[in-house]
Each structure stands twice: as structure tokens, then as C-alpha cells.
Nucleic acid binder design. Structure first.
Lengths: 305, 305
DNA sequence: TTGAAAGCGCTAACAG
DNA sequence: CTGTTAGCGCTTTCAA
């Protein structure tokens, strides 16, 4: 009979079901800067994979890193009674989410930790990752190391800069701020920042870019330079190996998976204290970090100008 | 008073509202192969942007190009009463969607046309794009042109091969099939196919890859070759310019936008006959297509071995 | 203009 | 074990 009804175009109404059953939908919201940024897309992929097995759907929405838009999206999602929220937040203060958390909506922060509230989070070991990169460059003899970063209001940016600063200081470099540039949120801005940095009277001999888009911008800026500085980029990207770009690598899909697992656990009733999971990074050394132009022959190596 | 209630954690129930109002949610489903593939991610971005202004949300789900999974996802979405479906389908026969369409759920096919039913679609001018690429290579004197393609059951693959074949034949090349390889769905498979093709006794002097991932695989395979063949890839990608890779370019975000517009129009009650929109391609010539190794000095140019 | 009531399609609780 | 009923929170209709 059910089959017959199906033939006639009958479909059970999942909306009515979700509504009836606890006034909660089977969707989980994923709010981030931009779906078309591969970093977010890979997080989405990981989360989707895990959620699917639980009969949950991922609803993605892009905030363009605009705090007001993010809040509007969150409100909207909450009204739509999503089961849980996965957020890569660009908001500075998350206290407005506290009532929802109390009312039982799991909220998991991805990539950037919650601010002014306690909640589950999955982040990257930013400072440690930067530390590894800086240590590698210092060891190769670099002293003038530049950093090109994203919007300075993003916590990830600040953590990466702090990791950079700590490693530089412990390498005996006090004026580490000299070659630090921030607020390069898109590829052209990053390209311009790198070009600007290299136009200094004493340009940096090495560069660290703090995310995949900035790395792309840097690559463009360096393309036609005869003696490009060493380069290490944060985030792995598909053509990094091909291009010989050294990176601080980590696993965005895993972040999505773990975020989804936390959500699933909470939905199943877990009320253990919020966890803050830190994902490891790994320095992948390829050609770009091994350039030594402008260094003077410190070691056996001597391929500089 | 509403504000006061809000303070207390009250939120209107969007689920109840959607349910009451016509038993249709404010979500639009987007079903494609894999969110983390930039091609799909960019379509999602374009669609999301348009839908947002109408108060609609995009719910993305990845089918992994598995027809059974795609059907399951579609059924699930329909049960959840999404307002409309945007599908990059890997199913061969879409008649099962006919009842839904009759019942008023707009269905828009993206990238790949509907099969056995009539419905709105937004596709790329595949054959024409390939034609341009082949013509360009033929004009440069290439005769042995290889093609590395995706799963042969995908209509886009077939159309691209047909465009290739037509252009080759009209260039007087009858044995165009000699260097055609299909079913390279991931990067390693594409890399292997290219390596294999170049191991022929009379290897092709030019290669066309039929999507971004295959192009990446080809780039890996060609990386260490002293005299790589000319290369043109289907799909633009972020580092194509930097790498000097010539491409058959088109605009996935636009595809998403137009798909969303069609959905919005149908939802507003438009009952004009289904439209099939074909998006143009543009051959972007960069260095990779200009290599002439193995050609013999046909023209003024003579940089071959 | 404001307020009460019906009912969307389900599920859970209850009666037969 | 099968069949009936109440009611989730909203919008829409109809009465006051």
C-alpha cells in the first residue's frame, strides 16, 4: 500500500515529522566565510560525510567574514531549528549564543575559538605551526623574515603572528615586526603586500604567508623575480607539491569530521564539559623554503647571487 | 514584548511555519559530486548568493558521482520538502523525477542535461569549447592530439569527446580515437593516463584534459618531462595563469546564479516551457598550448628538439 | 481592528 | 496488537 501510494506521487512529509518530533530539524548548519574557499569546502566535506551517517544534513552558508551577516545567518538557522551549529566565526563576542546553548543547541566552533563563552571547539595548532616554520628558516640562516597575514581581527591571524613573534624572539630577533603585514584578505591584496615588502631597502630573505589565498597572491608577486625570497605558506593546496611550495600542512577534512563527531555526541546527550581539540600541523619542506638568495654564504650551500 | 520574549530565549519556530505554509521548506537542495571540488563549490557559491536574497537556503549534499547515492539524496530532500532541486546529476534516466515536477517542485539540471524528461538546465557549451581548443592546436601544426577524460558515463565527457572528434575530423584526422583515454576520475588516474599516453611509440604532441582535476594530474605527469607536449585544460583554476596553463574557461558561479534564478522564477509561478541555457566557453591561451616539441619545423617557430 | 479557532501531517500516547 | 486521538507552533480564516 505504501508502495502504491508512492507511485501516485505520495511522499511522507519530513517537515511535519521534524516539526512534530521535538521541534528540531535534521539539519546541521555550517557557517563560514566562503564555500568556494577550498579550506572551508574541505571542512564541509568532512563534516558532511560524518553527519550523513546519522541522517543529518549539512546546510552551508557563507558570511563573507562579515560579523553582521554571520549573526543574521545564525539567527536564521536557529529559527529554522537546526539541530546544531558548526561555525567558523568572525564575530568577537559569542555571548549571544549562550541562551541557545542552554536551550540545548550544540554549538561547535571550528578553526577559531569561542570568545566570552565556553563551548566545544576544533582548532589548529597555529602558534606551534608557525614556530616550526620560523625555526626552519632561522636555522637556514634567515634573519629578515616577512609575514603576510589575513584580517587582523581574526583570532587565527593573531595566533599565527604570536607564534611567529615568539619564535623570532627566541631566535634573538627583536625587530620581528618590521616585515609583518596584515589585512591581506584576498589574492590581489596579498600580491600587493608581498610586492611592497620586497621593495624595502633591506627586503626580507624569507616570507611566511598565513593562508592558502595569501600564498597564491605571494606566488603571483614572486613569479617574475629573479631571486625570490624563501617561502613557506600556511595550508596545504593541491598544486603545492607540483610548484615546490613548502607549507605548514594540516587536515581540514579532519576538522570537519571531528566537529561533526562533537555535534553527534552532544545530540546523543553527552554533557561532559566542552572540549577544545587542537589539530596538529606538519611542516612540509619543498623547494620554496630552501632558497637562500641574499643570505650570504653561511653554510656549505651557496646558490645565492 | 517580542523583544522581551526574545531575551528570554524565545524564538519563533521556522519549522512550524514552513510546515504550515504550504508544506514546503525554505531550503533549496544542491546535489553534486563533491563539495570540495572547486568547480562545484563555485556553483554553490553563485547559487547561494542569489538564493539568499529570496530568503532561501542552499543545502548541499555530495553524491560522489554514485547514481544510487544521488537517488537516495534526492528522495531524502524531497521528503524534507525542499522548495527546489539543483542537480549535477550522474544518473542516466531522470524519469523518476517527473512526479515531483508535476507536483510542483522545480528541478534545475546544472552542468549535465536531464535525460528522458524535459526540465530546465544550465550547461556549458562543451562541444564548442573543445572545438576551439582542437582548432587552436591543429592550427599550430599538431596532428597527434591526445584527450584524457572523466568517467565515460558522464554526458559532459561524451559531449567533450564528440566536440573533440568533430574538430579532429574536420581537420582531416580520421584516427582521432587513437589517443583518447577515459575514466580518469581522480588525479592519480589522470596522471597515470597521461604517462601511459606519452609512453606510446608515437606519442601525442598535444594533450587536452577535460576537467580541472585531470589537468592537475596531467601537470604532475608532465612535470619532469624535458619536452612536454602542448596542453589545454578544460576549466579555469586559480593557479592556471601562474603556471601558464592554457584553458577552456567558463564561469561556474554564473551557472549557479542562473540555476538559482530559474528556480526563483519557477517558485514565483513561471510556467513557461523549460529552458536550456548554454554557457559560453572562452579559450584562454597561455604558454602550455604553445609548445611545439616533436612537431618538426612547420612554421617560423622552431623550438622543438 | 483585535481575538479566537481551525487545521497543516505527522508521532506518541492511549483505548479497544 | 491494531486503531483512534490529541496536539506540536504556526498562519489563515472567520467572528466579535
Amino acid at each position: 500500500m505504501l508502495a502504491a501510494a508512492q507511485q501516485l506521487g505520495f511522499r511522507r512529509n519530513g517537515l511535519a515529522r521534524d516539526f512534530r518530533t521535538g521541534a528540531r530539524s535534521t539539519s546541521v548548519a555550517f557557517i563560514m566565510g566562503d564555500v568556494s574557499n577550498p579550506f572551508y569546502a574541505r571542512i564541509a566535506r568532512g563534516a558532511e560525510r560524518r553527519l550523513r551517517d546519522e541522517g543529518l544534513q549539512l546546510v552551508s552558508a557563507s558570511s563573507d567574514e562579515d560579523p553582521a551577516r554571520e549573526r543574521a545567518l545564525i539567527d536564521d538557522m536557529i529559527e529554522r531549528r537546526v539541530s546544531a551549529l558548526l561555525i567558523v566565526s568572525s564575530v568577537h563576542d559569542h555571548r549571544f549564543l549562550e541562551p541557545e546553548r542552554r536551550l540545548g543547541t550544540p554549538v561547535v566552533f571550528l578553526d577559531r575559538p569561542p570568545d566570552h563563552i565556553v563551548a566545544d571547539s576544533v582548532v589548529i595548532g597555529n602558534a606551534a605551526g608557525m614556530g616550526q616554520a620560523v625555526a626552519h628558516l632561522l636555522k637556514a640562516g634567515h634573519r629578515r623574515i616577512g609575514l603576510v597575514g589575513d584580517l587582523r581581527r581574526l583570532s587565527t591571524h593573531r595566533e599565527r603572528v604570536e607564534g611567529f613573534a615568539a619564535a623570532m624572539r627566541s631566535g634573538g630577533i627583536a625587530d620581528w615586526e618590521r616585515y609583518v603585514r596584515a589585512d591581506s584578505h584576498d589574492i590581489p591584496a596579498a600580491e600587493a603586500a608581498v610586492t611592497d615588502l620586497l621593495a624595502s631597502p633591506e627586503p626580507p630573505t624569507a616570507l611566511i604567508t598565513t593562508n592558502n589565498r595569501i600564498t597564491t597572491g605571494a606566488l603571483r608577486a614572486l613569479r617574475s623575480r629573479p631571486h625570490p625570497p624563501a617561502l613557506i605558506g600556511f595550508d596545504e593546496f593541491e598544486l603545492a607539491e607540483l610548484l615546490g611550495v613548502s607549507v605548514i600542512s594540516h587536515d581540514p577534512e579532519r576538522m570537519g569530521e571531528i566537529g561533526a563527531d562533537l555535534v553527534i555526541g552532544r545530540l546523543a546527550g553527552s554533557d561532559e564539559p566542552p572540549r577544545s581539540i587542537v589539530l596538529p600541523t606538519r611542516l612540509v619542506v619543498r623547494d620554496s623554503s630552501e632558497r637562500r638568495h641574499g643570505l650570504g654564504a653561511t653554510k656549505a650551500d651557496g646558490d645565492e647571487t
